[in-house]
Simulated scan of single mutants.
Amino acid sequence: MDLNILWFILVAVLFIGFFFLEGFDFGVGMLLPFLGKNDNERRVIINSIGPVWDGNEVWLITAGGALFAAFPNWYATLFSGFYLALFVILVGLIVRGVAFEFRSSDRNPAWRNLWDWMIFVGSFLSALLWGVAVTNLLQGVPIDANMQYVGGFWNLLSPYTLVGGLTTLLVFTLHGALFLTLKIEGDMVERARRVATRVGLVTIPVVLVLALLTYVNTDLFTKAGAAVVFVGSAVFLVLAWLLLKSGRNGWAFIANGLTIVCFTAAMFWGLFPRVMVSNLNPDWSLTIYNASSSPYTLKVMTVVALTMVPIVLLYQAWTYWVFRHRVTDKHLHY
């Protein structure tokens, strides 16, 4: 198999895994100040993702490492051109991580409330800006013949990319609310269901607007496979909302997860074989060939990936199995 194609698929899979897993982390973080009515409830909400949130972020670190090693020109152009946006995402992730650790270091209500809102801010920024970044890759950015990004920060903001950011923000919020219906007990479950129902009702039309703008602003729908998968994401979203309304929370979570999987897969499929589209000249776009490492490097990386990735996946699956039970007040340590 063409190793350039293989590594493009692996990078796509890593981002799909990151958005699926970290998506509900972001959603839980954004809902924390609103669903938790007191300190005990907020601690239960945090504990629902406490054992897994940092492991979920490893998918992003691995995706970044894969970009750096397999497609160094993609990595260089992406991280230089999207520097400020990615820096804000990084700040958001750092703020979340610090907040999770610092929150319980003092029992002062004002202290804990501050860090609860920092979890919200970090989750909000990350969820919003990832959508902006992904849709920019598909729409195209100013890249010259030397693979250099020649635009500024404001080139990354357009009606299409802002709707893309709003889409990921809403879908991740819905993902987090559905996750909580499976991980907590008591009155909070019904609260999470109500939030999920309302968020889902708003998310569906936003996704339809994104589909329309994707048709107008990109060439994704010229590729039949990508178009089918993109439409599939909208279908799964509607299905998730219907399942939620019928009380099947677990199936609703799976359906919404498939929305994220299909949406991300469609974006990468729409890009292929490009990795970054130049809106100055299509011939200046970065592809899996002109942005890649040497064949020898790809061969060595393939051997390492086939050896280590299954071990990492088994370990993370084991972690989720160990912490599969619902979280209640009984699990809190005072």
Rank of each mutant, 00 (worst) to 15 (best):
T197D: 13
T287S: 09
K330C: 07
D187N: 13
A265H: 02
G257Y: 01
F102A: 12
L237F: 03
T319W: 11
V134T: 08
F268K: 06
V322I: 14
L60N: 02
A192Y: 01
F236H: 10
S278R: 05
A177C: 07
A85T: 05
S158Q: 08
F71R: 00
F34A: 05
P109N: 10
P310A: 05
D283I: 08
A177V: 03
M147K: 15
A226P: 00
L210W: 02
L286P: 00
R107F: 09
P109H: 05
W74K: 08
S293A: 15
V206R: 10
W74I: 09
R274C: 01
L298A: 08
F18N: 05
D329T: 15
F172R: 02
F34T: 00
G151C: 03
R112Y: 01
S105L: 11
R43C: 08
I184C: 06
N56H: 06
R194A: 15
T319I: 15
N281H: 10
N136A: 11
V88D: 03
I5T: 15
L170T: 04
M188P: 02
W251F: 14
W284C: 07
R194N: 12
D144A: 08
A110H: 12
R112A: 06
W321N: 13
R193Y: 04
T307M: 13
R107H: 14
N256R: 04
G36W: 00
D283T: 12
Y160V: 06
N281D: 15
L258P: 04
K37D: 12
V13W: 06
N113S: 15
D2M: 11
G176L: 00
P109A: 06
T302Y: 07
S293Q: 08
A224R: 14
S278N: 02
F236V: 03
I184Q: 04
A291Q: 05
L244V: 10
L314G: 13
P205M: 09
